[in-house]
């Protein structure tokens, strides 16, 4: 038995709101956003649709939806395996976008598409953006598209109301951080570690230094991700001044454990724990 569902999402009243607007609302309420990540098509798209609704109900303020990719360079074993399972089940981009379109009306958390660059490039950047925007996608994160190559996507995406968020890494020098912060849309994705996605026992203490460094050059919201897998870690990055905690592998792992129903129940519970910690 589930307890009565409470809708925590700050973006509740702004159905189909933009990523920036969602952060504005949260900031007005001094809240730190929770952004869970799941891989589309793992174990199947019906479960993905159900998971989006579950996460939305369980306190997700925005949701990152990973497009499964055959060569996910920035991902650790958990999300690699999820992508492989999704691809082996024949998950196609077309179907992912259709599922998004059919689902966004029922959730208040804006959908941020997490996709590697080649599927975008192969489809044609403008065509891809047209289709993503039409499906109701509000933001995009492209982990293998650094600032130097990003302009080709940033400009046409902005014209379609899709915000492309750029990443800052612990290795980024100050001048680069400034330039990335200037170009990034929606928020700035602060990668907490030198490394790939995956759960880690502690949040790198470097984040504590990186956050003020980033804050000094930008007013935009800052989301911290890669390696946040526990409620304590989420509240830690909040305490250090993050505007959002992004949790990927820990959610993907739970969703993949047991049957789809068991997985959904596990992420429902876990998402509530994370939200409570923020």
């Amino acid at each position: 038995m589930h307890p009565p569902r409470l809708r925590f999402s700050a973006c509740l009243d702004l159905i189909m709101t933009s990523v920036s607007a969602c952060f504005q609302t949260l900031r007005a309420q001094s809240q730190c956003a929770l952004i869970p990540f799941i891989t589309a098509g793992d174990p199947d798209l019906d479960t993905t649709a159900a998971a989006l609704k579950t996460l939305d109900q369980a306190g997700a303020d925005l949701i990152e939806l990973g497009v499964p990719y055959a060569d996910p360079l920035a991902d650790g074993p958990t999300i690699q395996a999820a992508a492989m399972r999704a691809l082996q089940r024949g998950t196609r981009l077309e179907a992912v976008l259709e599922m998004v379109q059919a689902t966004v009306g029922e959730i208040s958390a804006p959908i941020i598409l997490f996709t590697y660059f080649n599927p975008i490039f192969h489809r044609g950047i403008e065509t891809f953006l047209d289709q993503a925007a039409a499906a109701g996608v509000k933001g995009m994160v492209i982990p293998d598209l650094p600032l130097e190559e990003a302009e080709a996507v940033l400009v046409p995406a902005a014209a379609r109301g899709v915000e492309v968020t750029l990443l800052v890494a612990p290795t980024s020098p100050t001048e680069r951080i400034r330039a990335i912060a200037q170009q990034s849309q929606g928020f700035i994705y602060l990668v907490s570690v030198t490394g790939v996605t995956g759960t880690r026992t502690t949040v790198a203490s470097r984040v504590k230094d990186l956050l003020p460094q980033l804050r000094a050059v930008t007013d935009k919201p800052i989301g911290v991700g890669f390696g946040i897998s526990q409620p304590e870690q989420a509240s830690q990055v909040k305490a250090w001044g993050a505007d959002a905690a992004i949790v990927g592998s820990a959610i993907v792992q739970r969703l993949a454990s047991g049957s789809p129903a068991e997985g959904l129940s596990a992420i429902d519970q876990f998402c509530r724990q994370l939200k409570a910690a923020l």
Binding site: D144, A169, T171, S172, R176, I180, V191
Partner: peptide, 12 residues
């Protein structure tokens, strides 16, 4: 050509 890599590698 170009550089299509995670930001972490750009400085390297």
């Amino acid at each position: 050509g170009g550089k299509y890599v995670p930001e972490t590698l750009m400085p390297a």
